[in-house]
Amino acid sequence: MAEDARIRDYRSSDADEVNRLAVAAFDQFRDAFDDWPAMRAGLSRTSELSSGGEIIVADLGHRLAGAVGYFGPGVKKAAFFDQAWPIIRMLVVDPVDRGKGLGHALTSECFARARRDRCRTIALHTSPIMTIALPMYLKMGFSKVHDAPPIHGVPYAVYTKAL
């Protein structure tokens, strides 16, 4: 990970930057979604994940460079997840900061929180269009469990990792 990067808990003052990061991170996929305006609108509210889960951010220097949502066991999740599993949601890294290990560091922090919560499995859902994230998850030990409903025409699947 970049030497000057710091992983920390989200603060409400991070909201606008987290929302900007989410839109920027997904912009490269805009043509894959059959309703990019609707997808973009949802991404621009990523900070609202803090109302049901924990948002973890990566500071690089004096700016936000990445974020991820962690939803622990017992927190309401989409029906295609086992409700007992902690899940990782919306891992986003600023396109200018990719390749610095921030996605790996944010995912690893989710593992630490799942262990804190005494969980033996962690889950996420992702898509084959995520050509950087999906291989990273597989390399980190995730494996596909089942398909999930598509999002605006893009296929998704659920992946889990034993902790």
Rank of each mutant, 00 (worst) to 15 (best):
M136S: 07
A105Q: 02
D35Q: 08
G153K: 01
A32D: 11
L43V: 04
G153T: 00
R115M: 03
A133R: 05
F33R: 04
I55S: 10
A162E: 15
D59H: 02
V93P: 03
A162Q: 13
L102M: 04
L43W: 09
W85Q: 08
A112H: 06
L134R: 03
I132F: 14
F111W: 07
R120M: 10
G101D: 08
M39T: 09
H125Q: 09
A105G: 01
L91I: 13
M1W: 14
V68S: 03
R120P: 01
L91E: 04
L163Q: 07
I132V: 13
L91F: 08
H104P: 00
R40F: 10
C119L: 06
R8D: 09
S44F: 09
G99A: 04
F26C: 01
D31T: 09
S108G: 05
Y156P: 00
P155T: 11
P149A: 11
P95L: 08
D34S: 04
V92A: 14
D97S: 15
V145S: 12
L64T: 12
V18Y: 05
E109T: 00
R98A: 11
E3S: 15
C110Q: 02
K77S: 03
I122Q: 05
S44L: 12
Y159L: 11
F142S: 01
R115D: 00
G42L: 12
L102Y: 01
H125N: 07
W36C: 03
A2D: 15
V92F: 14
R118W: 11
P95E: 10
T126C: 12
T131D: 15
L60V: 08
P73H: 09
A15Q: 05
R6M: 13
S143I: 14
A157P: 01
D31W: 04
L138V: 09
V158T: 02
R116E: 07
G74R: 06
P155G: 09
A105P: 00
A5C: 13
I87A: 08
Y156K: 01
V18T: 04
M130V: 03
A133F: 12
R40Q: 12
V96H: 12
Y156C: 05
E17D: 09
Q83P: 05
D147N: 05
H62D: 15
M136F: 07
R45V: 06
V23C: 02
E3G: 15
A114N: 02
K139L: 10
